[in-house]
Measured scan of single mutants.
Amino acid sequence: KRPMNAFMVWARIHRPALAKANPAANNAEISVQLGLEWNKLSEEQKKPYYDEAQKIKEKHREEFPGW
């Protein structure tokens, strides 16, 4: 399985609240909304998620060399 990128790290945190706020929305609609919200963030706001994604990527590389 591929390691999460910065957007996926961010979305994992924000998806539950968005789903709760929009109970009639299906998963595809929630994903679209998450994408729109992510694109509104500044690079500075995204930086912690890029940092976390890098850590996940490095850990994945250690656990699965050659993947």
Rank of each mutant, 00 (worst) to 15 (best):
K1E: 14
K1I: 11
R2V: 04
R2K: 04
R2A: 04
P3H: 13
P3Q: 15
P3S: 14
M4S: 05
N5Q: 02
N5D: 03
N5K: 04
N5T: 10
A6Q: 01
A6S: 03
A6Y: 00
A6K: 01
A6E: 03
F7Y: 13
F7W: 03
F7M: 06
M8W: 09
M8C: 09
V9S: 05
V9Y: 06
V9L: 15
W10G: 02
W10R: 01
A11H: 02
A11L: 02
A11T: 07
A11D: 11
R12G: 12
I13A: 11
I13E: 13
H14F: 03
H14E: 08
H14W: 04
H14K: 10
P16Y: 05
P16R: 07
A17K: 14
A17H: 08
L18Y: 13
L18P: 02
L18R: 03
A19G: 04
A19D: 06
A19E: 15
K20Y: 01
K20N: 14
A21Q: 12
A21N: 03
A21M: 08
N22F: 09
N22V: 03
N22K: 04
N22C: 08
P23L: 04
P23F: 00
P23S: 04
A25P: 03
A25I: 14
N27M: 07
N27F: 07
N27S: 14
N27K: 13
A28E: 13
A28V: 07
A28Q: 12
A28I: 05
E29I: 02
E29M: 03
S31T: 10
S31E: 15
S31N: 02
V32A: 15
V32E: 14
V32M: 13
Q33Y: 08
Q33K: 14
Q33G: 03
L34C: 04
L34V: 01
L34S: 01
G35A: 13
G35E: 15
G35Y: 15
L36Q: 14
L36R: 14
E37M: 14
E37C: 09
W38V: 02
W38I: 00
N39G: 11
N39E: 12
N39S: 10
L41W: 01
S42Y: 01
S42D: 07
E43A: 05
E43C: 07
E44W: 05
E44V: 07
E44N: 04
Q45R: 07
K46T: 02
K46V: 02
K46Q: 08
K46S: 00
K47E: 10
K47S: 07
K47H: 07
Y49Q: 00
Y49R: 00
Y50H: 10
Y50C: 15
Y50K: 07
D51F: 06
D51R: 12
E52Y: 13
E52W: 06
Q54S: 10
K57M: 14
K57W: 07
E58C: 05
E58S: 09
E58N: 06
K59R: 08
K59S: 12
R61M: 12
R61V: 13
E63L: 08
E63V: 07
F64C: 09
F64Q: 06
F64K: 15
F64M: 14
F64R: 12
P65S: 14
P65L: 08
P65W: 04
G66I: 11
G66E: 14
G66A: 13
